[in-house]
Amino acid sequence: MTTFVLTQQQPPVRIRTRLTRRGRVVIAALIVLPLLIGAGALAANSGAVAGAVGTSSAAFHHVTVRSGDSLWSIAERIAPQYDPRDVVAALVDLNGLQSSVLQAGQQLAVPHEYDGR
Rank of each mutant, 00 (worst) to 15 (best):
Asp69Arg: 04
Ala39Leu: 14
Ser57Gly: 03
Leu33Met: 05
Val26Met: 04
Val32Pro: 01
Val49Gly: 03
Val32Trp: 04
Ala50Cys: 00
Val13Cys: 00
Val25Ile: 13
Leu33Ser: 05
Ser56Asp: 07
Thr64Glu: 07
Leu19Val: 15
Leu35Ala: 08
Val26Trp: 05
Gln8Thr: 12
Gln8Trp: 02
Ala39Met: 13
Ala58Arg: 12
Ala29Met: 07
Arg22Thr: 13
Ile27Gly: 04
Ile15Gln: 05
Arg24Ile: 04
His61Ser: 13
Leu36Val: 10
Arg18Ile: 10
Ala28Thr: 15
His61Cys: 02
Arg24Asn: 09
Val26Ala: 11
Val53Glu: 15
Asp69Thr: 11
Val65Glu: 02
Ala48Val: 13
Ala28Val: 09
Gln9Asp: 00
Gln10Arg: 10
Val65Ala: 04
Ile27Asn: 10
Leu33Lys: 01
Gln9Val: 02
Val26Ile: 14
Ala39Ile: 14
Ala50Thr: 11
Arg14Trp: 01
Arg24Gly: 05
Gly54Pro: 02
Ala28Met: 08
Val32Asn: 04
Val13Leu: 06
Leu19Ser: 06
Pro12Ile: 07
Ala41Glu: 09
Thr7Ile: 00
Val25His: 12
His61Arg: 12
Arg22Ile: 08
Gly23Ser: 09
Val49Met: 13
Ala48Gln: 15
Gly38Phe: 11
Pro12Met: 01
Ser46Met: 03
Arg66Trp: 08
His61Asp: 06
Ala28Gly: 10
Val49Arg: 12
Val63Lys: 02
Ala39Thr: 08
Arg21Ile: 05
Gly23Glu: 15
Thr17Lys: 15
Leu36Ala: 05
Ala29Ile: 09
Leu35Gly: 08
Gln8Met: 04
Leu42Glu: 09
His61Ala: 12
Ala44Arg: 13
Ile31Glu: 02
Gly23Leu: 06
His62Phe: 05
Val26Phe: 08
Ile15Arg: 12
Leu42Gln: 07
Asn45Thr: 14
Arg22Glu: 14
Ser56Lys: 06
Asp69Pro: 07
Val26Gly: 01
Ala44Asp: 12
Gly68Trp: 03
Ala28Asp: 03
Ala39Cys: 08
Gly68Phe: 13
Ala50Met: 03
Gly54Thr: 12
Thr55Arg: 14
His62Cys: 00
Val13Tyr: 01
Pro34Ile: 08
Ser57Gln: 14
Leu36Thr: 06
Gly47Val: 10
Val49Asn: 07
Ser57His: 07
Ala43Phe: 06
Ser67Ala: 15
Ala52Lys: 15
Ala48Asp: 11
Ala52Asp: 14
Ile27Leu: 15
Gly47Pro: 00
